[in-house]
Amino acid sequence: MTESSQTKNLLKDHVIIDKAIEPNAGWRDLPIGAVIPKGGTSRQFTTGDWRTIRPVWSPEKCIHCHRCWLYCPDMCWVSEDKKIQGVDLTNCKGCGICANVCPTKVHAIEMHPEDTKTEHTAGED
């Protein structure tokens, strides 16, 4: 028996596993030991509102080197089949690293003040 199947068999009804943690949950409704019973729940937390400048991507200039994808600390750049699809600004804090690491000669990313309306930034946004 593998550990995971074994663990599952041991689960008890009253142990809250997959229930979402409600912000106003009372103490009886929380998983024991402050465990977050699922991975990646910060998907529901948006850090994009920290931003004052935003990256604006020019797909026609992009050589898909993926330096932006790699060096973005907030995992904003979307890649599919080895091609950059755009930037998802949900969590983009506007640090400007992507624009800085984009090869100088290529210059496919520019940082613009947050209030300007620009195209090509959305990606999957």
Partner: peptide
């Protein structure tokens, strides 16, 4: 048998133990 519902070794079900609350 030992029972702990959030076993780290149950890698198909990733959990975060010991977060900042």
């Amino acid at each position: 048998e030992y029972r702990y519902p959030y076993a780290l070794l149950d890698i198909e079900n990733p959990r975060t133990i010991g977060p900042l609350t």
